[in-house]
Design a protein around this nucleic acid. Structure first.
Lengths: 242, 242
DNA sequence: CGGCTCATTGATGTAGCTCAAGCCTGGTGG
DNA sequence: CCACCAGGCTTGAGCTACATCAATGAGCCG
């Protein structure tokens, strides 16, 4: 931890921000935070907002303070694949240059703390820890992407849906010990169409697998978005892993 | 470029090594290279050698000087997915800690330049450019992984095989302009079984798609491993992208 | 109330899997 | 030098998991 400075130096908004604890900003001192925060724009965007491409984040970067962002790729004929989900306190945007065509879109309402490219460059130059944090997050994303390649390439439809639900459940509260077997409840951040695009299948098949898991008592469903998992171990068993 | 030092300081083996030009070592000065090279072990391992897990690279890292390494994940019941291919001058091994269960195996004979973890840590501390190079490589791998997620999730069998061949063809000579439409010839670094594990399909389907592409004149095959692509554009069209 | 979007469910079609047989090719030993 | 074998590849026949097409339901908003 390098936030050894006096806590009163830390800007109000940064104090409760997860990015300061586990994100990029964790590498910054109170003074640096103060400076950076003068150049950040906090904003909340509604679900569906495009956050990248020729529009927003080409010249700007952001920490996600809340909500879920989906990263996706599209083929000329419209087939689409979601290639990543990002949650707070992930960093959004690409150091160096973006060449690969990838789209970022708010899957839910998203709270952002944005700042210009020049500030990131400066931070990377002046504070060595920033680059390391970026490297760590990138390695984490790489692990997740590879994990998902296994899911996409080798799992059955029901294993895919179980894996997705397990991933979301695990992500809801990272602190939580998943061995404890207490019920977990959460709202899905994605529509069925998004889930289908994430899992490489059709809406209909996703829906059928939800129904199947519900009938087997592995999940409970309310209004199609609100999920309760009474026994996370049983869900885990359905993923095909472990 | 930070290799501003006298060329005669550069160790013999490093001079022709791709890692010095495009890989990690490119961030090092002649003096640093000299020091590092005293602690490296060059070796060539045959196809099939395990390079990671509890065995080799937990405490050691390496630059790939030649050959192809496949990274894969396995499910308890034996289903397998290749999640990445690495070529010279890629870096092999994981900074910080490896948690995700991933296996690295030589797909062909592989030439390595290995060194202990402590040396990498030291390099990262002392030479700032090293961390940046690692970050760049990791971002590249992330791009590739995501590209492959699209292939796994949304492409048909024949698009998958075409994408694989296109990727290999493009990788054979990265300098080459793929617009020029001259025939490209290469040997596949993977068996049909490996290709199947990479594309998330069965050996039989892979084989059928090769046959189909051959009958359509998009590729020529000799001994099942030696491929000629007379018109790279036609192959590209088969990938479904662009 | 009518017109959305999102989700579920059913009926039918098909791409790719499974199972099974046979074929090259390169290596080994008689 | 040929016979044999093993591992990798191809090809065929039939099956099935998932996609496609189509209809209906449930919440939501103007």
């Amino acid at each position: 931890m390098s936030d050894t400075s006096n806590d009163t130096d830390i800007p109000e908004l940064c104090r409760s921000c997860e990015a300061r604890h586990n994100g990029i900003c964790g590498a910054l001192s109170g003074k640096e935070l103060k400076y950076l925060s003068q150049h950040t724009t906090k904003k909340t965007v509604p679900a569906g907002t495009e956050l990248v491409g020729e529009t927003e984040a080409a010249e700007s970067f952001a920490n996600i303070m809340g909500g879920v962002v989906k990263l996706s790729k599209m083929m000329p004929d419209g087939r689409q694949q979601i290639v990543g989900l990002q949650f707070a306190p992930d960093f959004l945007g690409r150091p160096f240059q973006e060449t690969s065509s990838i789209t970022a879109e708010a899957a839910t309402a998203v709270k952002l703390c944005a700042f210009p490219r020049s500030k990131l460059d400066a931070m990377m130059k002046e504070t060595p820890g920033v680059e390391q944090r970026l490297l760590r997050q990138t390695l984490k994303e790489l692990d997740e992407a590879r994990q998902w390649m296994l899911t996409l390439g080798r799992k059955t439809a029901s294993e895919k849906v179980a894996s997705f639900l397990y991933m979301i459940a695990a992500q809801i509260d990272p602190e939580r010990d998943l061995e404890d077997n207490l019920p977990i409840t959460f709202d899905l951040p994605l529509t069925r169409a998004d889930i289908a695009d994430f899992l490489g299948m059709t809406i209909e098949t996703v829906s059928r697998q939800f129904t199947k898991l519900r009938k087997e008592g592995i999940i409970e469903l309310e209004q199609s978005r609100h999920v309760t998992v009474p026994d996370i171990q049983r869900l885990r068993d359905e993923t095909g892993e472990f």
